[in-house]
């Protein structure tokens, strides 16, 4: 009997999709300007970044770990990029490659220390968060890089598709597809998932779990650096405080998107498009709350409630699917 319902309906991506549509309906009827060209463009710029941050966290959650240093790492990489372009006069394309390499390197440090000490990545990245952010502030003397090449900042304010969509969103969506392909169809992607799902079994079947975990952290650093560049292009300057103190402003969206998307915190499961939908939902709600005028100080409160509600719902869904499968 259960076979009549397609599998997709049972996943929480489907639930998320419904929620996204419901919220879009609510906000477009209850507020003015939600569907305006300006608002949709602004949304696309924000959502692009949230997706990227969510993906950066997702690939570390895959290992059963966390990356608290995400924001600090992203901002450090972005500041490095600002320095390359403004002070060193390095061309944009080379700068971007350097920044991504730098981000991967910082991610490698996280991964290497985590694997070698066997300590939970929470404590390692708590320490590196403070170290990266501290060094970045010291080296830049908390000064921003504001004289970036015009070609770079213009890209951040470019408007595509009848001026509705920012090119940043296209980068994020493309990244989603690439990651989906890697995790679904490539050898290395399957190995990463296997290492996260059951490290002992993976080790026994000849996968170097340590190396896979380091790769995950490097990938996280890479994506965080990419998010850093995108934020720099969006603002038009590289500012040390653009992700808040110690990069904390990135932390909530970073966890919200993958957790809403159904990524298991214990590791071994990734949902690339779930993370994307999760990021879209968070951005929608955030934007809608401002438009409804709940007051900017309460937005945080509601985001916390939503995160709590989402994990509770997910738990309930799991409970019922398990019960159903036992019955059938």
């Amino acid at each position: 009997m259960n076979n009549k319902i397609p599998n997709f309906v049972k996943t929480n991506q489907f639930g998320l999709l419904i929620l996204v549509i419901v919220f879009i309906c609510i906000f477009s009827f209850s507020t003015d300007g939600f569907t305006s060209r300006f608002n949709i463009y602004a949304l696309s710029r924000v959502v692009a970044l949230d997706i990227m941050i969510g993906l950066a966290m997702m690939v570390v959650i895959l290992t059963g770990g966390l990356n608290l240093s995400l924001g600090a790492l992203g901002v450090s990489a972005a500041m490095f990029g600002g320095w390359c372009m403004e002070s060193m006069g390095i061309p944009i394309s080379i700068t971007i490659i350097l920044v991504l390499a730098f981000g991967s390197f910082l991610g490698w440090i996280n991964g290497f220390v985590t694997v070698r000490t066997g300590v939970h990545s929470f404590i390692v990245t708590l320490a590196t968060m403070s170290i990266y952010f501290g060094f970045m502030t010291l080296l830049t003397e908390a000064e921003a890089f504001r004289k970036l090449p015009e070609a770079f900042t213009d890209f951040g304010s470019l408007k595509l598709f009848n001026k509705y969509i920012s090119p940043l969103l296209i980068i994020s969506v493309l990244t989603c597809f690439v990651l989906y392909y890697i995790f679904k169809y490539t050898d290395i992607g399957r190995k990463l998932i296997a290492a996260g799902a059951n490290p002992d079994a993976a080790e026994l079947s000849g996968i170097s779990v340590d190396r896979m975990f380091i790769y995950c952290h490097m990938l996280s650093g890479f994506l965080a650096a990419l998010a850093g560049i995108m934020l720099t292009a969006r603002i038009g300057a590289a500012i040390p405080s653009m992700a808040g103190h110690l990069g904390f402003d990135w932390l909530l969206p970073a966890f919200l998107a993958p957790v809403l998307g159904g990524t298991l915190l214990s590791g071994g499961k990734v949902t690339v498009f779930g993370t994307m939908l999760g990021a879209i939902l968070v951005t929608l709600i955030n934007n809608g709350l401002y438009l409804i005028d709940v007051g900017e100080f309460w937005v945080r409160f509601f985001l916390g409630i939503i995160l709590l509600g989402a994990v509770l719902l997910d738990r309930a869904r799991e409970y019922f699917t398990v019960k159903n499968s036992i019955v059938s």
């Binding site: 929470f122 915190l265 945080r300 409160f301 916390g304 409630i305 995160l307 709590l308 994990v311």
Partner: peptide, 18 residues
């Protein structure tokens, strides 16, 4: 508890700012 207290962190802090 990490996720729960992350959520309550925002709830308590949001109440504080509100």
């Amino acid at each position: 508890a990490f996720i729960i207290t992350l959520a309550t962190l925002y709830i308590f802090k949001g109440m504080n700012l509100g």
